Computed example of a mutant assay.
Amino acid sequence: MPIENIPQIYLDDTKEMPDLFVYDFIMKQDVVKSKVNLGMNMFSFLQVGKKQVHFAGTAVAVNKDQSLLLKKGNWLWTELLDTETNYYCKLFFFSEKRLKEFLEKHTENKTVVKDEVPYFIIGNDNYITSYLNSLSTISNAPAIFMENLLSVKFEELMLYLIQKYGKSFELYLYSLIINESSAFKKTVESKIHSNLKLEEIAFLCNMSLSTFKRNFIKEYKTSPGKWLQDKRLQKAKETLEQGHLKPSEIYLDFGYNNLSNFSIAFKNKFGFSPSETSS
């Protein structure tokens, strides 16, 4: 599956990236685990449909009652239609330069923020509805005025969200401009019990599959396939020891296509079959 570079694919002139940019995204069919390289931080105002996103170390799902502020980076996006309707989302991109200018002007926090989650969930209230309507209205403005109008609208939105969510939103904004060290291990270990493929985990680490495998072996001294299998089998054993579920009820959750392969791998690791595991 090709990687979509956003917002570049929405721009007529990709040589010059604007500091602020609004795009109306409309979709007529479901998209599952689309690979997205998000080049700017972005508000995603979901108005019709459902959205799920995976980022390095975390995942989040929202419906039309919520919107997201997403950190730039590599994401896997799943976007689902509501019954018999199009998927509609208004996207508002902003540069790190504009964010820094806003923080310098309106906040006093100088705290270094690390390991913040890469998204912030926003409840869609009456203000947000009115705000989105105003964004639609100014979309028809002459280009010469658009930049100034968007600057005012960006500042208005940020001030409202700081007033609504307080310190938590302010700290989140600061986390967007912190250059964190590699989150390789954090990403890998957060996906142990997900059903993501190695290629998808590599993408979330912003690496090709071959580079991911080299980095993995350097970090963990074993292949990613073997390491993940061992971790998942250990978790399967713990699950069966609780006595509530049978092997036939869990093998799919741990990445096996059939019960036979699961049983063979389990017995090779532990010396007994999963059916012999008891609480």
Rank of each mutant, 00 (worst) to 15 (best):
M1G: 10
I3D: 13
I3A: 13
I6W: 08
I6H: 03
Y10V: 10
K15I: 08
K15G: 14
P18E: 11
P18N: 08
L20Y: 10
F25N: 10
M27Q: 14
M27N: 09
K28N: 15
K28D: 15
Q29Y: 07
V31C: 06
S34T: 06
K35D: 10
K35M: 14
V36D: 01
M40G: 02
N41Y: 07
F43R: 01
S44V: 09
V48I: 15
K51Y: 15
Q52N: 10
H54W: 15
A56H: 00
A59M: 12
A59K: 04
V62L: 05
N63Y: 03
S67T: 06
N74R: 12
W75P: 00
W75D: 04
W75N: 10
L76R: 02
L80P: 01
L81D: 02
T83V: 14
T83S: 14
T85V: 15
T85N: 15
T85F: 11
T85D: 15
Y87W: 07
K90T: 15
L91S: 11
F93H: 08
F93G: 05
S95I: 11
R98A: 10
E101R: 01
L103C: 00
T107N: 01
T107H: 04
E108Q: 09
K110S: 12
T111E: 13
D115N: 11
V117E: 14
F120V: 03
N124E: 11
N126R: 09
Y127L: 04
Y127Q: 04
I128N: 08
T129K: 13
T129S: 14
S130M: 07
L132S: 01
L135Q: 11
S136A: 15
N140W: 08
P142S: 09
I144P: 10
F145G: 09
L149M: 13
S151Y: 06
F154P: 02
E155R: 06
E155S: 09
M158H: 00
L159C: 12
I162N: 00
Q163K: 12
K164G: 08
G166P: 01
K167T: 12
F169I: 06
F169S: 03
L171T: 04
L173I: 00
S175E: 05
I178G: 04
T187L: 08
E189A: 05
E189F: 00
H193I: 08
H193T: 03
F203P: 05
N206S: 14
M207D: 08
M207Q: 11
S208T: 15
L209N: 13
S210R: 14
T211Y: 12
T211A: 15
R214Y: 13
R214M: 14
F216K: 06
K218G: 01
K218I: 08
T222A: 07
S223C: 04
P224I: 05
W227F: 03
L228Q: 07
D230Y: 02
A236T: 05
L240Y: 02
L240V: 03
L240W: 03
G243I: 10
H244K: 10
E249Q: 05
Y251G: 07
F254I: 02
F254V: 04
N257K: 11
L259N: 00
S260N: 14
F262R: 04
A265M: 05
A265Y: 00
A265W: 00
N268V: 03
K269P: 05
K269M: 06
K269A: 09
F270G: 00
G271Y: 01
S273F: 02
P274E: 01
